[in-house]
């Protein structure tokens, strides 16, 4: 199962500068574990110690916000594209 993951500029320090990486997993959690196996920093940037997605990281499956799908347990299929964007927020 190859999933394409689009990495934003701010997280490319964890991917040797690559804007797109490929990973494996039948859920988002498995995909991030797979990516994290190669780079723990990327995993820490996406997933909290509680195992949930960080509040200020937006993750999209084929352009849908995964918060409205299954969150970190969202199922993935071969050929899916996952996009990551840090939230734009402030006060």
């Amino acid at each position: 199962m190859a999933i394409e993951v689009r990495i934003p500029t701010v997280l490319r320090k964890h991917t040797d500068g690559e804007g797109k990486v490929s990973g494996e997993g039948s859920t988002l959690a498995e995909l991030f574990d797979d990516l994290g196996g190669r780079n723990q920093g990327l995993h820490q940037a996406l997933v909290g110690s509680d195992g949930q997605l960080h509040r200020f990281i937006n993750v999209y499956l084929n352009d849908e916000d995964v918060r409205f799908l299954g969150g970190i347990q969202t199922p993935l299929q071969d050929g899916d594209t996952v996009s990551i964007l840090p939230a734009v927020a402030g006060g």
């Binding site: 937006n58 999209y60 352009d63 916000d65 964007l85 939230a87 927020a89 006060g91």
Partner: peptide
């Protein structure tokens, strides 16, 4: 006192 961009609208703009 706070803003957070609508995630989908933000993605559309970035795309």
């Amino acid at each position: 006192t706070f803003y957070t961009m609508d995630p989908k609208a933000m993605l559309r703009a970035m795309n």
